[in-house]
Design a protein around this nucleic acid. Sequence first.
DNA 1: GGAAGGGTTCAGAAAGTTCTGAAGATTCGC
DNA 2: GCGAATCTTCAGAACTTTCTGAACCCTTCC
Lengths: 156, 156
Amino acid sequence: MNDRHEQWQAAERLALTLTEGGLQRMAARTLAVFLFTDAETVTMGDIADQLGVSAGSVSGSVKSLLSVGLIERLPAPGSRREHYRLREDAWATLFSTQNTVVQLMLQAAETSIATTAANDPAHRRLSQMRDFYQFLFQEIPTLLHRWQQHQATRPG
Amino acid sequence: MNDRHEQWQAAERLALTLTEGGLQRMAARTLAVFLFTDAETVTMGDIADQLGVSAGSVSGSVKSLLSVGLIERLPAPGSRREHYRLREDAWATLFSTQNTVVQLMLQAAETSIATTAANDPAHRRLSQMRDFYQFLFQEIPTLLHRWQQHQATRPG
DNA sequence: GGAAGGGTTCAGAAAGTTCTGAAGATTCGC
DNA sequence: GCGAATCTTCAGAACTTTCTGAACCCTTCC
C-alpha cells in the first residue's frame, strides 16, 4: 500500500491522464510530483531530481503551472531556493481554465452567425451551436458554486 | 453579412477553436464544412473540394467524426456517393465525449490514493482531487438533463 | 460482367511539438 | 561588491503527429 515503486508508477500514469486533459507532457509530470511528494513544499531541484530531467524543462513547466494557478510560490524563508506547492483550489482552477474553451466556442459561433443569412441552413446549425455553449457558459458558475457548498458540508 | 469570403474565414477560425477543444486539425476543418455548408448534406468529394485536401485526409476525418457521433451517414438514395450531415445532438455529444477525461481523472486519483498511507500529505492532496472529479462526474448527467429541458422550452 | 467513380489504407514526407544543454541573468551570503 | 548556487532562455536535436499520394478494393451503372 505504501511501496515507493508502485507509487511512482501511479504518479506517471496520472501524469499521462493529465496530458489527455490538455496539459503538456512535462507540466503534467511536474504536477504529479506536487501531488505525490511527501514533503509539504518542493523546489525546482527536487522536481528535476525526481523526474530525471533538465533544469530547463522544470523551469518551463513550473512557469506554466504558475501561470494557470495550479501551484503557488511560497514566501521564501531566507533561502536561496524557491519553494512551491500545490494550491488548495487547484482542481477547480484547472476546470475553469479548460472552460475558457467554452467561451471561445461561444464567440466563434456568434461571429459565424453574423456571416449567414437567416434562411441559410448554416444559420440554423450555428444557432444551435451558440445556444448550447451559451447554456454551458451560464451553468459553469452555478456548478462551481455547488462545489464550494459541497466542500463546506465535508470540511477537509 | 452574407459574403462568401467572410464566411470562409469564419469557418476556418471556428475550426481552430474546435482544435483548442481537443479535435484534430483536419477533423475540426471538416466539421466546420458541415456547419457552414448551404446544402443539407455533403459528400466526401464536397469536403475535399471545399478544403482543398486529399481524399485520404477526408476519409480519415469523416471516419473519426462518425465514430464520436458528431455526424451521421444518410441512407443513400441509390446514389454512388455517400451523403453525410451534422447530427442534431452534435454539441451535447461533443461535450460528453470530452468528459470521458473526467472519468479517467477520477480513476487515476482513486488508484493513486491506494498507494499512499493515510498520514502522508499526498493522501490528502489526492483525496481532494478525487472529491472534485467525483463531484463533476455526478453533475454531468444533471447538466445534460437541464440542457434538454432548456431546449424543450425553446423549440427549434 | 466490365469499366469507372468513389472510398480506404498505408508508407513516407512535412509539419509541429517537446526536451535538452549550454550560456546568460539573477540573487543570496559573505 | 564578489562568488556561488539557482533559475531562465533559447537554438537545435529528437520525437510525435498529421497529411499526402498512390495503390487497392468495392459498388454502381450500362
